[in-house]
Amino acid sequence: MATIEVRKAHAGDEAALVELRAEMFRAMDVRADDDVWRENAHTWFETRLTGSAHGIFVVTENDQVVACAMGFVRDAAPSPTSPSGGDVLISNVCTLPAHRGRGHGSAALEAVLVWARGTGAGRAELVATLEGRPMYERNGFETRSAPLMRAQLH
């Protein structure tokens, strides 16, 4: 029987978090084979596993990290949907392919949502793949009419 644990990520989880991030990019049809971003992501995770602005959570199965989700508090101006300002961007919600369909992604998302509610932010936002939308909708996320747009600055 598998031992499942949902916990806050800690030192030593960085490599697994980078691999899950690469898997997320593959699911979004984004090339993720460049070592430069991986090295930078490893360092990024190292410096953000502690502190209150980032909530990074993992799901382990028999002590192996198999899924994750993270959120970070953004300094957003007050708005009708977040009257006090600020929000939480949720990202990197991913499960290794061999471990999908067991609720690990949902468990990681729930952990980050509990953390997000404790930040005092008024709303959470994320970018969803088509496959992930049903899970997010079950957790109260709605598709908005204004599409995400992006421009490369470098």
Score class of each variant (00 low, 15 high):
40 N>L: 11
30 V>C: 10
79 S>A: 14
121 A>K: 10
69 A>V: 03
62 N>D: 14
91 S>I: 02
105 G>Y: 03
6 V>C: 12
64 Q>T: 10
123 R>I: 03
131 E>I: 04
75 D>C: 12
81 T>K: 13
151 A>W: 14
154 H>F: 07
8 K>M: 05
18 V>G: 06
55 G>H: 08
39 E>V: 12
108 A>E: 08
140 G>R: 10
40 N>V: 08
28 M>L: 11
16 A>N: 05
77 A>K: 13
64 Q>C: 07
114 V>G: 12
138 R>K: 15
152 Q>L: 11
10 H>A: 14
104 H>T: 00
132 G>V: 06
128 A>H: 06
20 L>Y: 08
130 L>S: 10
126 L>W: 08
34 D>H: 12
64 Q>P: 00
72 F>S: 08
3 T>L: 13
1 M>H: 06
97 P>Q: 09
57 F>H: 10
141 F>V: 02
13 D>S: 08
145 S>L: 10
98 A>K: 09
38 R>L: 02
37 W>G: 00
20 L>E: 02
125 E>K: 15
41 A>R: 13
33 D>Y: 10
114 V>A: 13
52 S>K: 14
114 V>S: 13
19 E>L: 12
141 F>M: 06
49 L>S: 01
83 P>R: 11
84 S>C: 03
136 Y>M: 04
63 D>M: 09
80 P>N: 04
74 R>W: 04
140 G>I: 08
49 L>W: 02
137 E>H: 05
69 A>Y: 04
133 R>P: 00
28 M>Q: 15
28 M>P: 01
144 R>V: 13
52 S>M: 06
20 L>V: 05
24 M>P: 00
21 R>E: 04
115 W>H: 06
128 A>L: 03
109 L>M: 13
74 R>V: 07
24 M>R: 09
147 P>F: 06
109 L>G: 05
105 G>V: 03
92 N>G: 13
132 G>Q: 08
31 R>K: 14
75 D>G: 11
41 A>H: 09
74 R>A: 09
19 E>Q: 15
91 S>E: 13
56 I>S: 00
61 E>I: 01
81 T>Y: 11
136 Y>I: 00
23 E>K: 09
83 P>N: 02
54 H>E: 02
78 P>T: 04
107 A>W: 07
127 V>P: 00
76 A>P: 00
92 N>V: 01
48 R>Y: 01
51 G>T: 04
83 P>E: 05
4 I>L: 10
79 S>R: 14
125 E>L: 15
42 H>W: 13
19 E>V: 07
63 D>L: 09
63 D>V: 03
86 G>I: 07
57 F>K: 03
127 V>D: 12
66 V>D: 02
109 L>S: 07
149 M>N: 06
144 R>N: 03
112 V>L: 10
69 A>H: 04
49 L>T: 01
121 A>P: 02
96 L>M: 14
105 G>M: 07
86 G>D: 08
77 A>H: 13
68 C>S: 15
104 H>V: 00
54 H>W: 14
36 V>C: 01
139 N>T: 03
35 D>I: 10
112 V>W: 06
149 M>S: 05
28 M>Y: 10
114 V>D: 14
142 E>V: 13
153 L>R: 08
17 L>F: 11
47 T>K: 15
2 A>S: 15
144 R>A: 05
141 F>E: 01
29 D>A: 15
137 E>D: 06
143 T>G: 12
105 G>F: 02
113 L>S: 01
51 G>P: 04
